[in-house]
Design a binder for these strands. Structure first.
Lengths: 165, 165
DNA sequence: TATTGTTATACTCTATAACTATA
DNA sequence: TATAGTTATAGAGTATAACAATA
């Protein structure tokens, strides 16, 4: 039996394997001038940290994000989740079905729109989310341990200036 | 016949489709406190920008990164590329074969290690890289147009503090 | 006619095991 | 014994087309 169900992806850093003598080759000088490159590398590091910290709850980033949005905005619809989290509807169906089967979310008929379903967390889902959010925050702080509180705040603000409309 | 060979992924933002009246639901307040979430969202936005700007060269981010490292560090080996760019060796084989078949890179026997191959850009590869880097820089600037030059510099520095050893 | 949720499916990306040739 | 490069393949992530029910 395996410990965790999910494939556990630990992002390999540029220098985690034994290297030969002439191993510090560089060559990334230009790439490091691109915010896209830097953001992607940092995101991979932080996601690895997240996976480690939230492993016991068996939640991938997308599952965690869905639960968090539902928890902080009960009654949200599947389509709204898709727009908020950049997930395509056919894929969201699968994700929500999995969370439903785990007893973490509930679906009610939408009050005004007969096509839609309002989503909310079950009591178990609320419990899990509270614990997972605490763990995720701790993991995020560990992943950015070399940043001061002020730097973390600045970084979040600058990143949001890029991806927020 | 399709225009471009590659699947062209334009990241959908949270608000690019026609929405109903009650569409600004929020619910991402907590997620936006996590640097991992912000970095991932910003990276997706910037990668979308990159894909648009570099489309004419038919280079995905990973292809572009490989060419850039080889160009700025000729003689680098496949294994070193894997470590620098966080790509697993079996996948790097495929990527390098594609670039080789396009006539963009060359492989020479390594001077000191009979197992390894030293990589370098062909003249065509050098031409393509020069053009692609210029386009990538422009795309990166467009993607971060709401940031000042000082903010871009700060952002790059803070992101590197997260992912660099 | 447009939108929500859904099924089925294809494609891309990422990961693991195992082999060879050389160090 | 360990490492570089490689093959084959499995698994996860992301994408499109098309449909029924409702607006």
């Amino acid at each position: 039996m395996s410990t965790g169900r999910r494939n556990f992806r630990m992002p390999r850093k540029g220098s985690d394997a034994a290297n030969d003598a002439s191993s510090d080759v560089g060559g990334t000088e230009y790439l490091e001038t691109l915010l896209g490159y830097n953001a992607r590398r940092a995101a991979l590091t932080l996601v690895g940290n997240f996976m480690q910290g939230v492993a016991e709850f068996d939640l991938r980033p997308v599952d965690f994000s869905i639960l968090s949005v539902i928890g902080h905005s009960p009654g949200v619809t599947s389509r709204q989740l898709c727009q908020l989290l950049n997930v395509l509807p056919p894929n969201m169906v699968v994700l929500l079905r999995q969370l439903d089967r785990r007893g973490l979310i509930e679906r009610h008929p939408h009050p005004t729109d007969g096509r839609a379903l309002g989503l909310s967390l079950s009591p178990a889902g609320q419990d899990l989310l509270a614990q997972a959010e605490a763990a995720a925050t701790q993991a995020d702080l560990r992943g950015s341990a070399r940043l001061s509180a002020a730097e973390r705040k600045t970084l979040a603000r600058l990143l949001q200036k890029i991806y927020l409309a």
